[in-house]
């Protein structure tokens, strides 16, 4: 998101410090998936619009993005009316919607900030399984968490 203030950040062979804003934005849209602590959904837009939002940033046509979004929603058990708004869903569903958005582009790098922080055990299990599956597919999944159960599923742990 920002230019590094020191050291080097290399993403798939490209030094982030050398990239302009447009290229960095393109990298985030194409290679990264973000799961924020509070889901960070746009309350004024529908659930489907929230999930396919990043297609615009990648320059991807909307139709295939909508198909992929429907697959992910079915996979994570958030099959809602297409007109449903984030304010009409539970916290667990909101986080799963955010997960759908993060995985829409099949990212190579997933950054998740307390992805299970506000979830019940059942919803947390769905999120953890999805992140594990993405890691098994070859993606780097970086999680910041206080949850011991989630920590236990990680391959590498760094304590701060």
């Amino acid at each position: 998101m920002l230019k590094p203030g020191g050291g080097q950040v290399v993403v798939e062979g490209e030094s982030a410090a050398q990239l302009n804003d447009r290229r960095r934005a393109q990298l985030r849209a194409e290679r990264f998936g973000f799961v924020f602590q509070d889901a960070a959904l746009d309350a004024t837009r529908t659930v489907l619009d929230n999930i396919v939002e990043t297609a615009l940033y990648r320059g991807q046509p909307r139709e295939p993005a909508v198909r992929r979004a429907n697959e992910l929603m079915a996979q994570f058990g958030v099959e809602l009316r297409s007109s449903a708004k984030p304010g009409q869903v539970s916290g667990g569903q909101a986080q799963r919607i955010a997960l759908c958005r993060a995985l829409l582009n099949d990212p190579r790098i997933v950054l998740a900030d307390e992805p299970t922080g506000n979830l019940d055990p059942s919803s947390a299990g769905v999120v953890v399984d999805a992140l594990r599956a993405q890691a098994r597919s070859g993606a780097a999944v970086i999680v910041v968490t206080h949850e011991p159960t989630l920590v236990a599923t990680c391959d590498r742990k760094i304590e701060l």
């Binding site: 934005a25 939002e53 940033y57």
Partner: peptide
């Protein structure tokens, strides 16, 4: 501003 921040984080360029 949170909306714009989210868009930027998810990959929207400044130009967009």
């Amino acid at each position: 501003r949170k909306d714009f921040g989210r868009r930027r984080a998810l990959g929207a360029s400044q130009g967009l």
